[in-house]
Amino acid sequence: YFLAKPQLLVPVSRRLVGPGELKYLVTLEKFYPKEITIRWTNGVGEPQESLSSTESFTDIPDGTHSVCSEVTIPEELLKNTEFTVRVSWEHETLDTPGYKDLSIRDSDYLWTPVVKEIQKPKVFHDTPVTLQCHISGYFPNDITVNWLRRSLHQELCEETNLVIRTRIPRKEADNTYSCTATLTIIPTLSIHQGAEYICRVDHPSLERPIERITEKIAVQDLPWIPQVEEIIVPKLEEKKKASLTCNISGYFPDHLKVSWFKKEPGTDSHPIKTPLPNDYYKVIEAKDQKEKLSCQSCLKFTYTSKRDHGAEFICRVDHPILEHPIERSTGPIGLGKLSMNRTRNT
């Protein structure tokens, strides 16, 4: 007859289980005799309330025993930063019970928030812009987000009067949560030039909040009205491919609408849609947003005198800043000649 004390050889494990629960599992090994009492308690501060647990024993070839005990904790209880779970065990080899206290503030807790850098948008004077910060991998679902602005003179203030949203959290396949925090501001040159924005994220698992900071904001004041060039018309040849090109630049925001129309001799304009049933005309657009907003719109077709001679092609540009659309026209086109470009008012 011999005695062997229970040993906690591996850390207490944690696992997320649905819906919204955290499972703790403790394994005690190499003890004898087999009789052992395991008790789980929980509470705020000193754990007091007993929890129902499940135990499974394994007999080891050397004559000792091991036991796995697990308990499930509802997500809501974990939102209190002072909430603690204690697992304790009593065995005749121990003078005092062994125990382990567990909290989501433990250094080995796996599901603290992962906070990405704030996405950097283009910032223009007196135009609403939204800052976004993606947060993921956290449990329980209890995120607090605050946005702060640090001025060029290092003054720090909390943004409270602007549009602040945290999108509805999404539950991921691994039972963690994710969301995107947003802040919509209307930047001005006088207040926001050179300022930094801070997204401060707090969670019950964190000893201190996580912060992500933008670069110093460069507020731009660009021309707003689209600059629409005359349509570039190539020399037209029978049954040869042709491309009419209209270049637009200097507009903001990026809500540009470009439409092409064909006006037959003696008829009203009607829009050319892409693709047409007969596939005669196609519209292709290419936008450049690297430095300034610009767009090149091309109308591509195969010229035939029967269908196209004397027709007029119109490029219409619309934008929220415009009271009326801007139009550019090729004028009547014909075989082997360049058209007279014209500006039209609508």
Rank of each mutant, 00 (worst) to 15 (best):
L22A: 00
E312D: 11
D221H: 11
D318M: 04
L3K: 05
H125V: 08
G45D: 06
E291K: 15
T96R: 10
L77V: 07
K273S: 11
I248Q: 07
N141P: 01
I248G: 00
E229N: 14
R208L: 15
F301R: 01
N80M: 07
E215F: 04
K30I: 06
T127C: 08
D59A: 13
T304Y: 02
T41A: 08
T245D: 12
S56R: 14
K79G: 05
I118C: 00
R149C: 05
P61W: 04
D288W: 09
K79W: 03
K263D: 03
K306G: 13
S269C: 12
I232K: 13
H324P: 00
T72H: 06
E172L: 15
Y303S: 03
G43F: 01
V115F: 02
S329V: 08
Q7H: 06
D268Q: 15
T245F: 04
I333S: 00
S178I: 04
G331I: 11
R165M: 12
N161D: 13
V317S: 02
V12E: 05
V163S: 15
L77D: 06
A311V: 13
I143H: 02
K235T: 14
C298E: 09
N175Y: 13
P325V: 07
G43I: 02
E327I: 03
V258G: 02
D95V: 14
R328P: 01
E291S: 14
D202W: 04
Y251G: 00
N141Y: 02
E172H: 09
K30W: 14
P61L: 05
V114I: 15
G98H: 08
A4L: 08
L28P: 00
D221G: 08
S339P: 14
T84S: 12
G266W: 03
K273N: 13
Q7E: 15
R14D: 13
G250E: 11
R14L: 15
R150T: 03
R342D: 03
Q220I: 04
T166I: 15
S52G: 06
S88H: 06
E159K: 07
R212V: 05
G250F: 02
K306L: 14
Y251A: 02
L322P: 00
R200A: 07
R316I: 07
K306Q: 15
L152E: 14
P169V: 06
I314T: 07
L322F: 03
L162I: 08
S50P: 08
S305I: 14
E211R: 05
A181F: 01
E92P: 00
S305D: 13
K100C: 10
R342F: 02
Q48W: 10
P275R: 04
I73E: 01
N345H: 11
E312H: 06
L244E: 01
D95L: 11
P169R: 04
H192K: 03
P320M: 11
S151E: 02
K257F: 14
V87R: 01
Y138T: 03
R200M: 10
W111H: 03
W260I: 12
